[in-house]
Design a protein around this nucleic acid. Structure first.
Lengths: 409, 409
DNA sequence: AGTTTTTTCTCGACAGTCGAGAAAATAGAT
DNA sequence: ATCTATTTTCTCGACTGTCGAGAAAAAACT
């Protein structure tokens, strides 16, 4: 059964329309909103008045000298209406950011992670403490933080509450929602890192709108994949399949997940290292490979070293074959590479091409468009912003009746 | 941007709600509809009166003796409100069915297809002629046919208008929408056969609702895959990835698609035949393998013939590995096997199991639930009904204002 | 015939959107 | 300095649609 539609839903929908228009296209006037949303001027008025009263919107100053006529007044999000905290967990550090409702960065710091034995057990309390510190530094009442958005590599449960498996903490499951529930009133969401990248690229790629989807591959110690499907009406639906541990070749090298022949076991940094140094493929994978070491291997490969070159080519092949399979499922789609591994893209490209050509889709319609976008961290942050702030907009639209509204108006 | 919401959309949505409630749960009374949809009695009244006037709904007789009180009158679809034609194209025949708006089968016939050289060029005119005959046999005005729903194996374009590639007609592209446009006013949709099976299983599996998705594999001369995602509110979103031509093993046997190492090249009937008879793997695949011949191979395999047994096991392995990759993308999901190949399921099962166990998902959460459902043709028909009739409901809801409505009421 | 029970139908109130036009605010013209 | 043209914002009455409550209908039971 679908959902019932009353005048209630109608208003919610139109409020959301206004908020998301403002979100995607910045401060706008009454008339802009009207033409953009298709709503009549009268309706826009009713909505903006209501949101202004509720403290969600505020009127910016009009820009003067913009031609004849009454000057437009721009509406924009009220900054102090609520705050968002993002936490990007990566292998060597966690980056914490505090952002206001309008999407402006207020404060940010990194906290390095150590790779000793106790680091995993101490992770949760350290995380909690860091969040507390972030709020304190800006003298922010905790109740004003409406959302906490966390990202990590690995597998996340459907609710976005628990980290089920991660390359950093292994099978140590963390329930972030439960961890933060005592301290915070905010909505806590955990997302796969590459999913957020896909989200960010999805909304950015929107204007072209030629293709209906795109894929992004994160190259690093482990391999991540994100898919963004571009739905009608500016919506982006992102997902993050477990690509790194998809079967590449049965009986292949030992993977960190305990399986054999995963893509990551050949194309992740430790896989490349293993092949390059001719370590037996069932050797327990390295926990962490420093970038300089990878750089060194890449240098020897570029200098003509056979085995190093072969390692990168095999890695590319694993990626290409995997992407070929991806395209069997989702059709041919443009591919973006990101992450630290992109600095070896020249070495990976031939293998990727070879692997891709095994696909029916590629043979029929040609090679997909491939681009490289090295700055992964920034994309992750953008993904955080888009998802979390849109979520706040939604929550505002849905919670419209509770505050006062019944008595006063 | 989302879509604007006015009182118009509100009514459309609620009309759709009533129609789909009626569709999924059969004839119902005023009150039933009210509780099911959540709409107030007054609103249900307004809607049913409108639809009755428009000739979409009609009141069935009340069933007498059902206790005290005023007897309920059941609403149901007006049969003569519109008709649907379905055409199921399979390798050896095309089945044409005529169905009324309530989903009742009115007429049906099969037309055999021959496998000679001219058959493909003659296909289109024969198809057109058969549709004409179907309408004529029931003395039906063509304008009353609202939808023509066609299914085939192979690749379909996004609009559902053109058959891009099929195992039966190869690269000979057919634009069914264009083919039928001169003769029919109806909406023409082409769907992948296995997608329809997934749709049918999806709506049937709904009550359990434990898993959020399911996959169905069609085993035959070629291999089909359908996925049904169970969305909230009774909605099923079905898709049909190009599974049969997904890469199984690089450099594997020659496939009908022209590639090497596709799943189908090992697991399709011709692939099994090739392996069983030790024909070189780059031999041009047989166009068609009669079932009795497959039965014979299966018999020898069951009787202990090494090579025949190996052929089925390899086929199962290709399927299992493919499904393992599917689960890397979609998570662990229950699997249904259908199609003529299910009669060899005992021989395929060991290979499938072995292939599945290579998946990270399976190792973590255990083997997925596997069921067999041999009667593919009936499932395809059910899928046709659900998709096409739901589409008609939607069209009715959307086209509400045009007929009269403005003048009369 | 009267009462009870259940269902269907109808009426007034309410929420929300829309079109049109009034009011506001500015730049340029006189 | 005042007036006019122009553009934007705001307001009012009409319309559409939903909802709750109660009236009307239609059967079974007493």
């Amino acid at each position: 059964m679908l959902i019932k539609s009353g005048s209630e839903q109608m208003r919610q929908q139109n409020i959301l329309l206004v908020l998301s228009g403002l979100r995607r296209h910045g401060p706008q006037s009454h008339t802009d909103l009207g033409t953009r949303t298709g709503l009549s001027s009268a309706t826009v008025s009713a909505i903006t008045v209501e949101l202004e009263k509720a403290g969600i919107l505020e009127r910016s100053e009009q820009q003067p000298g913009a031609g004849r006529g009454r000057p437009r007044v721009l509406f924009s999000q009220a900054r102090n209406c609520g705050y968002l905290i993002t936490a990007q967990i990566s292998s060597d550090a966690v980056q914490y950011s505090l952002v206001d409702y309008a999407g402006r960065l207020i404060d940010r710091f990194d906290e390095a992670r150590r790779h000793d034995a106790q680091s995993t057990s101490r992770f949760a309390p350290q995380f909690r403490e860091a969040l507390a510190r972030l709020a304190e530094r800006s003298r922010l009442a905790r109740d004003t933080v409406m959302a906490i958005s966390i990202s990590s590599k690995g597998t996340v449960d459907a609710d976005g509450h628990r980290l089920l498996w991660s390359p950093l903490l292994g099978e140590q499951e963390i329930d972030f929602a439960a961890l933060l529930a005592p301290d915070w009133r905010a909505v806590v969401t955990l997302s796969n890192e590459t999913l957020l990248v896909a989200q960010a690229l999805g909304i950015a790629a929107k204007p072209s709108a030629e293709d209906h989807a795109l894929a992004v591959v994160s190259l690093g110690h482990s391999i991540g994949l994100g898919i963004a499907r571009l739905r009608r009406h500016d919506e982006v639906e992102a997902s993050a399949p477990n690509f790194g541990h998809m079967l590449h070749a049965p009986g292949g090298g030992l993977c960190r997940c305990g399986g054999h022949g995963c893509i990551e076991a050949t194309a992740g940094f430790y896989g490349i290292l293993r092949t390059a140094f001719q370590v037996p493929a069932d050797t327990i994978p390295a926990k962490f490979v420093p970038l300089p070491e990878m750089d060194k291997i890449a240098q020897t490969a570029r200098g003509g070293n056979r085995m190093a070159g072969y390692a990168f080519r095999q890695a590319g092949l694993a990626l290409g074959n995997g992407l070929s399979r991806l395209m069997s499922f989702h059709g041919r789609l443009p591919i973006v590479f990101t992450g630290p591994g992109t600095r070896y893209f020249d070495l990976l490209a031939p293998g990727i091409d070879e692997g891709l050509s095994a696909s029916h889709e590629v043979r029929l319609k040609g090679r997909p468009e491939i681009t490289v976008h090295p700055d992964e961290q920034r994309l992750v942050f953008e993904g955080h912003l888009d998802r979390a702030l849109t979520g706040m907009d939604q929550a505002i639209a849905e919670a419209r009746l509770s505050p006062s509204e019944k008595r006063s108006a």
